[in-house]
Amino acid sequence: MTGVELDPVEIQVLQDLTILVFAPFVSGAIAHLGARLQGRRGPRVLQPYYDIAKLFRKETLVPEEASWVFLAGPVVAFACYLTVPLLIPVLTQYPLPLGYMGDILGGGFILSLAGFAVALAALESGDPYAQLGSSRAMTFGALIQPSILFVTFTVALVTATDLPYFEAAAVRSSLGQAIAPAHLLAAVAFFLVVLSDTGRIPVETHASTLEFGMIDEARTFEHSGPALALLKWGAAMKQLILYVILINVFAAPWGEAGSRQVGAVLLAIPAFIGKALGVGVIFAVIDNSFSKLRLFKITEFMAVAFLLAVLAVLVLFLGAR
């Protein structure tokens, strides 16, 4: 079958659009499912879209003391979230031209830059809760870094690069590679990292209104209007980006397009959203079956992620003999 072939650049734009357009949908679906699991009817699946549209129509209020950083923060963060999908395998099995621009660490840096921009904007607002939130987000972000580093080391030891495309190809290459102990450990460690970075239950109550337990959510207290819409949209995109890395690099890198055919690439979109929803179900179930850790116990959770990641590297060192 010889259909129309897409230009790699077009595919890359399509990757970005997929994340941009479907991120609120995945968030909404998880929120809906979570509510259902608690016996509530829950918000509509499309509710995040309505929220974002509503916020874009509202006016922006800026605290008196705040400077331009307050308004620039959300925009910078949003730009960062638009950059990362260029580096990771969202729709294709083969690397796209801009995929070589940055490795897993590069993607991590850009995500951190986004977090940094939001934290700065929160500091500018002068609101104690926003500052508390950004302080916590930075602290726990730093504490989870060692696990991310060791997961990256695992990828580097397996593929001799740290490009996400190659790890996915290695997992796809054989079943043995997919169930190799190092890969399993790294995947579980990364799962815990995603759990922590998307503000899910053992670490933070998602969409809670209780300020004391808040980490990420507290940072956006003073923002309003389009800026808040960008922050909310950005948070949904960050979640979907982390799902992409979890699914398409570690857990299930199957179902992406193997060619540049229009049909194959377009078919990869529903396949990916389906997988993302599958992961979302797991997250929603975890959200509803565990209790939130006390703030000072979060380090224990991170120690577990670190343990798994270190063991992955250890296993690779000895297992290679």
Binding site: G176, I179, A182, L184, V315, A320
Partner: peptide, 25 residues
């Protein structure tokens, strides 16, 4: 590519996973 090159068989992998479970517990 050291790890890929000498890719151990699935059997030893399974044994490794069980031994890992012993350590994790």
């Amino acid at each position: 590519m050291a790890a890929l090159g000498t890719s151990p068989s699935t059997l030893t992998d399974a044994a490794d996973v069980i031994a890992l479970l012993v350590l994790l517990s």
